[in-house]
Design a protein around this nucleic acid. Structure first.
Lengths: 187, 187, 187, 187
DNA sequence: TATGAATGAGTCTTCATTCAT
DNA sequence: CATGAATGAAGACTCATTCAT
């Protein structure tokens, strides 16, 4: 693995455990087995590494969410997407913790956040189509997206804190809840 | 207002804006109009102030959530509780931002978090009764609580980031979604 | 002597010997017998100490130059002033070296230099009167001042580099040269 | 232009603007369009480049000063020499600033300075002859040389700082002053 | 109670120099 | 000859905390 990659991964690991400020560059250098100066060869400064991690995960994210959606009803597609999100975070606990505790203001600023939004364009389109086709509730799109994201994160959180084992059954419950919260409701 | 209170509120304000590490004690002292040494009369160290803020808000929380619940159906009570949560955070943006960005690990450790849980005992009881009475879905209690909390926070977030104005209608939509996600569902 | 004064004098000594950049704050702290942090209690940053030294010497300067001028002819006054300058620098070799090697751009910027000019207002007035009274050559005032300053500095330099012992006779020669260079010359 | 020359000129430019310490080798490399390593092919280290610049200018100097001296009286020759010095510095502002602000101790050490003195042997001879022939004042040779250098530098300084436009008339005044300061004076 | 001068360990960052290619 | 990635020592500066008053 090349040095830049090693630096990024080391920073991710340490920062998730200790927080950005409790992670000195010297420790990153040591753990990544490079000289301190080398880090500055690849990155402008400490925060740029954090931002690069944030962008990396955000980008992953947009791709993973819409991957391998099944042919079939909108409901099936939605649930698959929800599970993609759930599985990604459960499978990448570092990414999850990073987004929860590190990838927030004021560490990550408005500008960087905005730039990440574009990765979600396809998710947005998918949800919008759902509303228009009366598969989803006729409420504001952003509310629907935020809620969907929220239910998945709630499930991941319980799992990652070991508050719930998330058995097959429990996961199914969570998916059901998520779907019931957004599915079309006649007036 | 006495000095201790002034220190706490100043710290809350600054920490929400700048982050814990970008908020030097000297600035807190200056903004709170006390000497640095005075802060150390009232608090052991910097982190203790953060923890005290966390405890303060957590305590508020348990009280506010269950305040003024209407007589009537479980649904009405639940929705009132949900709105209590929503309104508290919208009305106290500093508290919201603090809990989102500051009151998280590793700044707030496991122990302090656990201690805060007790303030939610009554909420827990209320939800548990809902499940037993078949007012709520028969799924794990923690999942139900986390989801409820999650939907409310989603709504607050949209409002506080000005992504949604949260009109009467939009708020009603959010409450409906929240209720639909947890209400009893016959098998 | 108080700490601030000790810091200034230590910095002056070290900086004259080693140059600004070869003088670490840690050494200043050590030699002045204070903690590094203490320096930053009294000064914004390293450069501010340098600027303060510069201002201090500049101020001294304007006063010393015009001190104890004898009653008598303009010539006598001028020569006394010239000797004041010479003696000040010979008696304060640190000040001399500082002004020669440290108190120059880009270390000392335009703004600080300008601010120091006001200390020379009385010197300026004195020279101007000399021109108007036909005691001094009728040439641009700034040229006359610069030349006067230049001849004195030339003498100090020879003395301070031990290239010349500057005996009574040699000093008298220098004063004569200085006077001859600026005295009135009929057309 | 070959690489070595490009490195020297780039360093000269940057160092005059920013100071030695504010001029990283990496910037020199970039501006000179060579690799950092290449610089170390041609020079031992950073300081050696500075010293080479110093020697280069010093050498130029000795030559320029005595160039094209007119046949005629000593006075005419002296004034031509003085103007040579003046014109060289006014025409080469980089050289002037370098000698003023960079080519000084402790950056340029005693040894390098001594070595440069030999370039002035002919100037020295010229002035000495002036004294012996009673064209110049009978004072210490070094004083005479230093003063001559000083008056010229004073003039250049006024010009280069734009404090004086140095019109034909003003320049003539300066030359006159210089000559009056050193010319023979019967006892 | 209250003060704020003093401390110094610890941080990020820079940059001259080296060396494998 | 030329490159530029890699190094790590060294520097300026910050800031939580202490303590004499």
């Amino acid at each position: 693995m090349d040095k830049k990659q090693r630096i990024i991964l080391t920073m991710l690991e340490l920062v998730v455990e200790q927080g950005v400020n409790a992670t000195p560059m010297s420790q990153v250098a040591k753990d990544a087995n490079v000289a301190v100066g080398t880090i500055y060869h690849y990155f402008e400064n400490k925060n740029q590494i954090i931002e690069e991690i944030y962008s990396m995960i955000s980008k992953d994210f947009g791709v993973v969410l819409m991957a391998n959606l099944p042919e079939g009803s909108f409901k099936e597609k939605y649930q698959a997407m929800w599970l993609n999100l759930y599985n990604y975070f459960v499978g990448n606990p570092l990414a999850f913790k990073f987004m929860e505790f590190v990838g927030v203001p004021p560490i990550i600023n408005q500008e960087i956040r905005q730039r990440a939004v574009k990765h979600f364009a396809n998710v947005r389109d998918f949800m919008l189509a759902g509303i228009l086709n009366k598969d989803l509730r006729n409420v504001d799109l952003r509310l629907l997206m935020q809620i969907s994201f929220g239910t998945a994160v709630s499930a991941v959180r319980l799992k990652s804190k070991n508050e719930l084992p998330m058995t097959e059954k429990q996961l199914q419950d969570a998916v059901d809840i998520a779907w019931d919260s957004v599915k079309y409701k006649p007036v």
